[in-house]
């Protein structure tokens, strides 16, 4: 079959490893790619003492390279400590797959981002972030760059959907330029909560929609 993918990629695409969800995971993250529209969710179970990733699962709303990278990255991360797993690069994942077409780089880098985000989520949830960065407007905006605007497939910052960001004593207030009854309003609200709600110094996230 002369498709532009290696046998290894096709094997992981056909029979992806570690697919699904973990009930009550110790950490999870959802990453979406603005340009490609693909999404990856990563779930972790981490041994609290050794910090070894005991179990890892992923879900993909994506193309073949996205699914294959999700599969290989979970294989590579399983059994490693979170610090070791953090260091896994896209290149290592691509090499393990026997190479990926250059044009597919960003569909597949998403899976690597997903793993890193899940580990970060674990560290934040378990107080492992040594230098606790205070949540500022800049931090909020940086995180919102990972929230997709489903209308365009680009993130909510690039598409100027976020009109206003305020951070005041643990209260984050956002104004989203969509009517509250817009079909994607609940999605966007949920995604924003997920990206910001758990930050160590955030007590409340208020999301307002325009009329």
């Amino acid at each position: 079959m002369p498709l532009p993918y290696t046998e290894k990629v096709m094997e992981h695409f056909r029979h992806p490893k570690n697919v699904g969800r973990i009930d009550e995971p110790d950490a999870k993250a959802m990453e979406g790619s603005p340009a490609c529209g693909d999404m990856v969710a990563v779930y972790l179970k981490v041994n609290p003492d050794s910090k070894v990733i005991d179990d890892i699962k992923f879900e993909s709303y994506g193309c073949a390279s996205n699914i294959a990278t999700g599969s290989i990255i979970t294989e590579l991360a399983k059994g490693k400590t979170i610090d070791e797993a953090k260091g896994i690069t896209w290149k290592e994942a691509a090499d393990a797959l026997g190479g990926l077409p250059a044009i597919k780089a960003h569909c597949s880098v998403l899976a690597v981002d997903g793993l890193r985000a899940a580990i970060q989520n674990y560290e934040e949830r378990h107080g492992l972030v040594t230098e606790q960065e205070p949540t500022t407007v800049e931090v909020v905006i940086k995180r919102l760059k990972h929230v997709m605007n489903p209308v365009t497939g680009l993130d909510v910052i690039r598409t100027k959907l976020v009109k206003q960001v305020e951070v005041d004593e643990g209260k984050v207030r956002l104004v989203i330029d969509l009517p509250p009854n817009h079909q994607f309003a609940p999605n966007i609200r949920e995604e924003i909560q997920e990206k910001i709600g758990h930050l160590w110094d955030v007590k409340q996230v208020v999301i307002e929609f325009t009329d």
Binding site: L3, M10, F13, G37, D38, Y61, G62, C63, A64, N66, I67
Partner: peptide, 8 residues
Amino acid sequence: VEGESILL
């Protein structure tokens, strides 16, 4: 679901 995955 994504189209390229369906195609393959």
